[in-house]
Simulated scan of single mutants.
Amino acid sequence: MSHSFVQTTSLPPLAAPALDRGLISKLRANLFATPQDAALTILAILFLAWAIPPAFSWLFAQAAWSGPDRSVCATIAQGGIQPDGWSGACWAFVDAKFDQFVFGRYPIEERWRPSIVGILFVLLLIPMLIPRVPYKRANALLLFTLLPACAAVLLPGGWLGLAHVETALWGGLLVTLVLSYVGIALSLPLGIVLALGRRSGMPVIRLLCTAFIELVRGIPLITVLFMASVMLPLFLPEGVTFDKFLRALIGVSLFASAYMAEVIRGGLQAIPKGQYEGADSLGLGYWQKMGFVVLPQAIKLVIPGIVNTFIGLFKDTSLVSIIGMFDLLGIIRLGFSDATWASPVTPLSGLVFAGFMFWLFCFGMSRYSSFIERRLDRSHKK
């Protein structure tokens, strides 16, 4: 007689152990998993407890938020209204100079023109960044054709009855965003062309692309901007010249394209040889093979490197001050010379504001890059 028994129904799932649930479990797994982790966590907490209160006090609690001049940002001994020993940020300086930080020395009565360009940029960029919004091709066409055309007409003027505004009067966030937009829009396609040229089977094209990439990557951006601003006019025929801001745009774009080419080349080398052979077996031409098979996979692999180059380009726009252009950082530093706001805390407050603005844009690009990577990973797994 058999005494065996086979379970015919599933048992209910057991609850997780008490130690694996709740906040305490997460803290234990992430912060106190080992003695070394616990020691580092305690040191980090102590450092934050030491650093955050005075930083919060300087940035917010004791800060001067509004006022007509430097008196609100200086102590009584310094000719101001603050009590002796006061230490706080001078956000009143940022508030008073905010329009100048955005538009530079662009004429006040004409600032509606860069404002319209900025609104168009936001309205075209946001739908482009949201994957579910349709008509991406039309959106990209407007972003990279209509927007530059409108900017070329509105910003410098001299067309359709608009007053001409010299680029020497541009400044602030306007210059930073224009340089970044043009540099990003041009460096990616130029980098792709240079990367393909460096891997070309034609020796002349490969040599030219390699020479350009290695030459540009071997010199600092300051040198490129200095050459474009000072040396280039010396080699032009008499009476022929280019706008200084246009020269900066070209120099920044070419400089970034050399670094972008190496990022793209790394992606191309990561594609298995079978992908090339598979495209050849289908009878695809060179550009069809690259455009439909190889490049989409390569660009997907190097998204972090591409965004890293974009972030570096955005921050490097501050170097245009070497040729007399005042970007966001340059126009803030120019404000330090205003005797109306001369105080011990004014420079640090302005630099903190500049650092926050640069961090805000760079952090946004980084987070969007991470979002795109996760989305592409999920689509690949499916």
Rank of each mutant, 00 (worst) to 15 (best):
S2C: 10
T9M: 14
L14D: 09
L14F: 06
A15C: 10
A16Q: 10
G22H: 00
G22I: 01
I24Q: 09
F32T: 09
A33V: 13
Q36V: 12
Q36C: 04
Q36N: 12
L40C: 07
T41R: 01
L43F: 09
A44M: 14
F47S: 14
F56T: 10
S57G: 05
F60E: 04
A64G: 13
S66N: 10
G67H: 05
G67W: 03
A74Q: 03
A77M: 03
I81D: 01
D84T: 08
A89T: 02
V94F: 07
K97N: 12
F103C: 07
P107V: 09
P107A: 10
R111W: 04
P114F: 12
P114Q: 08
I116V: 15
G118C: 07
F121H: 12
V122F: 11
L125W: 12
P127I: 03
M128Y: 08
I130R: 05
P134Y: 11
R137S: 13
L146M: 15
C150G: 03
C150V: 15
A151P: 01
L155K: 03
P156E: 10
G161Q: 06
L162W: 05
H164R: 11
V165E: 01
L169R: 15
G172L: 07
L173F: 15
L173C: 09
V175L: 09
V182A: 11
L190W: 03
G191W: 00
R198C: 05
R198D: 05
R199Y: 08
G201M: 12
R206C: 08
L215F: 15
M227D: 03
A228W: 00
V230A: 13
L234S: 12
L234R: 08
G239S: 11
A258N: 01
A261P: 06
G266V: 07
K273L: 10
G274H: 04
G274S: 13
Q275S: 13
Y276T: 04
G278A: 11
Y286I: 11
G291Q: 05
V294F: 04
L295K: 02
V302I: 13
P304F: 06
G305P: 03
I306E: 00
F310N: 02
L313W: 00
S318N: 02
I322L: 12
I322T: 11
L328F: 15
G330H: 01
I331H: 00
I331V: 14
I331Q: 03
I331F: 07
L334D: 08
G335F: 07
D338N: 13
T340I: 14
P344I: 11
V345H: 05
T346Y: 10
L360E: 02
S366C: 01
R367W: 07
Y368M: 12
S369T: 00
R374L: 13
L376S: 04
S379D: 14
S379F: 10
